[in-house]
Simulated assay, not measured.
Amino acid sequence: MAAPSTAHSLETFQQLVATVAQRLYGRALDADLQKWLNAHYGADSDWYRQMMEACASGVAQGWLCQRENGGIRWGRVFEAGAELGGFSVDVVQMKDIAGPHHSHPLGEIDLILPITPGALFDGHAAGWCVYGPGSAHHPTVIQGEAWVLYLLPQGQIQFTRRAA
């Protein structure tokens, strides 16, 4: 059997993201949303398993996490649009590292997909983590390697400038 084409894999990835993102419209980015996401699309769900496979395929095919800087692989997969509930979609691949400090003017929804069993993102295991509007952090993966999918409302993110 032939391997799926890049276009087919990207389309599958987009459909998986849209399944969740379109259900988020108008919802507050808070602890209740995090709980809901983990209950419906968490690490024990079939959807999560499919997303893990889609990320592995995307990295192997070279259309996911195609950039690298400072030991972090990353890339914006989709700009914010109606088909994705107004969210942009980024995926990073990190291994035992802290990323650049940034803030989330409208919040950030993260899906943690450990490549190394037990890897943690900002102290969270496999599943979802939600940061509310105005939050900020140094995204950090410890205890191994993980992909983290970021949903950013309207694609908004602000990286902290380094002091000169």
Rank of each mutant, 00 (worst) to 15 (best):
A31W: 12
Q93H: 14
L29S: 11
S135W: 14
G118S: 13
S88T: 03
H40T: 10
Q66F: 15
L24Y: 02
Q34N: 09
V59P: 00
F159L: 04
A82F: 14
S88H: 08
R162C: 06
G144H: 12
A56L: 15
A126G: 03
E145I: 06
A125M: 05
C55W: 08
F78G: 06
R162E: 08
Y150D: 02
V91T: 11
T160I: 08
K35W: 04
C65P: 14
V20P: 03
L113Q: 03
W47Q: 07
P117T: 13
T19K: 08
E53L: 12
V59A: 12
A3R: 09
G127T: 05
I97L: 04
G107N: 14
Q154N: 10
G26W: 07
W36P: 01
G81C: 12
D96Q: 02
P153W: 00
R161W: 08
W47P: 00
G71P: 11
L24D: 02
V77G: 04
V141P: 01
I142C: 09
W147F: 08
S103H: 10
Y150A: 05
P133K: 05
P4L: 03
V92Q: 10
I112T: 07
R161H: 11
Q93N: 13
D122N: 15
E145N: 09
Y150G: 00
P105G: 10
A43N: 10
H137D: 09
I112C: 02
G134Q: 12
D32F: 05
A54H: 01
N38K: 06
D96C: 08
V91Q: 03
P153L: 01
Y41P: 01
I115Q: 14
L106K: 15
T160G: 10
R49C: 02
V89A: 07
Q14A: 13
H137L: 14
A21I: 06
